[in-house]
Write a protein that binds this DNA or RNA. Structure first.
Lengths: 350, 350
DNA sequence: GTGAAAGCGCTAACAC
DNA sequence: GTGTTAGCGCTTTCAC
């Protein structure tokens, strides 16, 4: 016997349900029909001013609030937007980058009629998430995955407006999803060029996982700049975006025994991890080795020395994703791809 | 003319609404009544095994997903839990502590039938939030405010199950809200005692805002321990939980010209901020001054030297809050107050 | 401009 | 155990 479609029975009993004023009560009080109240509530213009006024008063007096369930049942619109976060990503929720995106989404939505439905996609039961999303329970979805390359949710696009954070792993997967991101290649290139400009010559890299677009692209940006300058395009090690992995990668780099006077890490956490490894060898930052991060979050700001990094507008990223999705739902024309600007922020580690 | 109850008209037009299989279609296909399908879907036991099986097949074949709106309209239960975050708190969303709570909430909910409705309470229009919450749109609410003392949402408790993060500012406000938190006083006391035990004698404090319970209680814990040991209960400065304020507070402390060989900060960010001020004076950590934080987040872990701190189970805090709320909604007995354990984590700054 | 009436998809008595 | 019958509170044609 398989489990029911819903894994748990609905809560029964419990807190008392108190009666809420209904649209019908408002209509009665204002002496009009329910249809008219509905029109007023929804801001339809085709209602006489005096009637509108009367309805408004009735609404205020009764403290009427429209019932969302009834509304969406009748209108076939939920006014709900899902923010899908794969479980593995949720684990690293502590990553300030994700937290910022969520903040951006929530704050943008606060000024709309939409409601934010944040859901953790438990990877062991993808069906649950898929069903929920496709079951007409939301008007659109935002997908924020650390493994954003795997646009395994792309198939959703056929039945639901969907916007991703970051580019898909394979450029034209599924004919192109809607997404919002930054130009990682160019951003990292610029960071490296700035380092060259400041006299650094042997610039190493601590890359992110090579199955994620940001990991891939930032490495590419570094390599292009380094190779163009006649440097060593193999002077890099891979980490997994955690501080520990950054420290390990730096140790391996240092163990190579080749000269290194700068290192660019694919995120701030790894950059700060690199600090540890650099100091273990008795080297100084930035005197012996300059360090540059990526993201520009609290970790880099509070590091010692404060981290030079590539700023990426993460709160805005969340807001823009949401804006794109809302337009998509409304049927307004939107660009498939939105690239936000990054900025090289020089602090004291370079 | 005032604005409509809903500040924006519902999205109209836009993405095509495709027809979803309904319970009725499942019933027809399985050759039973809608009521029976409903029973199967909701896991009622009173359905014969073979019929249950037939319904299940029909559900799978049709790829049926129950419509939440219809369900809650009929059942008077929304299966939605609101996570309310005041706007001012959202600004500091970057604070890993909040991010962790949100993670805990979302992950706990992932295993239930509830849906997480994260909403930013725009402080300039509190009515919007209040109305939404009281309008029968959610089954319960979780309130996470940085200014958690101000349980200004406490009135909601009369119409909705509500659980807060942290104690209210005034202990018995409103006859006592449900909340989940830690014992800040005891936790900070212990930190100070550990410092005394390790030979520190002049222990200063960088307190948090004195209009928030955590700010108040951690200062109290410090003061009690210090005064008992014959120390100076006035050797503290106040910050606002940001790194900068921590640095400033530390400078003021140092400017007093009295001996200080340790400082406990009310959170990790301020502790790391204190690092800066201490080093400006050419002092070493921990040799000259030991530093202890509070929270145990990524900022302290990646600091140099790694920060000794008081661990507070923030992800669990979110999960437990949610658990309490879910039980409350279900009418199960729950303790009004739940205190989670903290732990002194010794690293290299002490 | 406004009202009447017919559902939206589901649950919950109540019969059988 | 299973089916019948009412709605849940709202939007939305379609008349007037």
């Amino acid at each position: 016997m398989t489990e029911p479609v819903d894994s748990a029975p609905p809560a029964t009993g419990g807190h008392p349900v108190i009666a809420m004023p209904t649209l019908e009560m408002v209509a009665a009080r204002a002496g009009v029909s329910r249809a008219t109240v509905s029109r007023v509530v929804n801001g339809s213009t085709k209602v006489a001013d005096d009637i509108t006024e009367a309805v408004r008063s009735a609404i205020d007096e009764l403290n009427y609030v429209p019932n969302r369930a009834a509304r969406s049942l009748a209108s076939r619109h939920t006014q709900v937007i899902a923010l899908v976060i794969p479980e593995s990503t949720a684990m690293v929720f502590a990553d300030p980058f994700f937290a910022s995106i969520v903040q951006g989404v929530a704050m943008y939505l606060a000024n709309t009629e939409y409601t934010l439905n944040m859901l953790i996609a438990v990877e062991s039961k993808p069906e649950k998430t898929r069903r929920y999303l496709m079951g007409g329970n939301v008007d659109g979805a935002l997908i924020v995955s650390h493994h954003s390359g795997d646009h395994s949710w792309a198939h959703l696009e056929r039945s639901l407006p969907v916007v991703f954070a970051g580019r898909p792993l394979r450029p034209d997967e599924d004919g192109g999803s809607y997404y919002v991101g930054v130009d990682d290649v160019a951003a990292e290139r610029e960071a490296v060029e700035q380092l060259f400009r400041r006299g650094r010559r042997a610039i190493a890299a601590i890359a992110g996982p090579q199955d994620m677009p940001p990991g891939l692209d930032r490495l590419r940006g570094w390599r292009e700049a380094v190779v163009e300058a006649g440097g060593d395009g193999d002077l890099f090690e891979i980490g997994d975006f955690t501080p520990e992995s950054g420290a390990d990668a730096m140790r391996r780099l240092l163990d190579r025994g080749v000269a290194i006077d700068a290192v660019v890490a694919a995120n701030d956490q790894m950059a700060v991890g690199a600090y540890v490894a650099i100091r273990e060898r008795g080297l100084r930052i930035p005197d012996d080795i300059a360090v540059v991060g990526f993201d520009d979050n609290v970790v880099g700001k509070t590091a010692h020395p404060p981290l030079t990094t590539v700023h990426q507008p993460s709160v805005e990223l969340g807001a823009v994703m949401t804006e794109v999705l809302v337009k998509l739902i409304a049927g307004e024309p939107v660009e498939k791809v939105t690239i936000l600007p990054t900025r090289f922020v020089e602090r004291n580690s370079s």
